[in-house]
């Protein structure tokens, strides 16, 4: 068992345990703290996979941004009885049974899935060699050399077979298609729009008070 494996088991099991604690805990603020550990553990898993950029984004956007927002929401609404809202024992029983069944379903369907249809995974052992941020950046710019095989049509990947047969001159690989750059920008603008919309929705309604007082 290598060091990476040991680290994976530690981080992975902690993440899973914290996720279970999110469900089990009744106190809503503690729930948010367990969620914090779950998200941080997920970031740890990303780092273990060698996907540094993803892990740092998870920490920056999710843990540093979204979760602070959620905790704000919790603290603004956690008054008196709402700190601990309990579900009945019968609901718990059903939820646990359904949850276990769902997990079993996912695990079984995974085991019977035919993975041979996917392209062969022949990846180097050391994640740092192949999976650093540079690759993601090149992928965003449409550099096909980082992803030799494409699973989806129209995204970076090997030239199609038809192109190969016609023998047409290939454009330089670094400028072939900026496949994910536009979606990436759209998602960023989307987030900005949503944040403004949310601020508008959640703002204090002063107009009604003014109207009532007049």
């Amino acid at each position: 068992m290598s060091l990476g494996d040991i680290l994976f088991w530690i981080v992975g099991l902690m993440t899973a345990l914290c996720a279970v604690m999110v469900v089990v805990t009744q106190h809503i603020v503690r729930c948010a703290i367990w969620l914090l550990f779950t998200l941080a553990g997920t970031a740890g898993l990303f780092f273990l996979l060698g996907l540094d950029f993803l892990g740092a984004t998870q920490l920056f956007v999710y843990v540093g941004g979204t979760l602070v927002l959620v905790i704000f929401g919790v603290m603004l609404t956690a008054t008196g009885p709402f700190i601990q809202l309990r579900a009945g024992a019968g609901e718990w029983a059903i939820a646990i049974i359904v949850g276990l069944l769902l997990y079993g379903l996912i695990a079984v369907s995974w085991m019977f899935a035919d993975w041979s249809k996917l392209p062969e995974a022949a990846l180097p052992d050391d994640p740092k060699q192949m999976y650093h941020t540079e690759q993601l950046g090149r992928g965003l710019l449409g550099d096909t050399s980082v992803q030799p095989v494409s699973a989806l049509p129209g995204v970076p990947g090997k030239p199609r077979a038809a192109e190969k047969q016609t023998g047409k001159l290939q454009p330089p690989p670094s400028r072939q298609a900026s496949a994910y750059l536009l979606p990436f920008e759209i998602v960023s603008v989307h987030l900005l729009v949503v944040l403004i919309g949310a601020a508008y929705l959640a703002r204090a309604k002063r107009k009604r008070v003014v109207a009532a007082s007049q």
Partner: peptide, 30 residues
Amino acid sequence: RFHEAFRVEGQVFALFTIVLAAAEAAIALA
């Protein structure tokens, strides 16, 4: 990490998930 075909796509979609989760949390909290 483990499949050559998703080398870039996996990362990009995970990024999208993170960003969309942030958007969803903001709206839901509002």
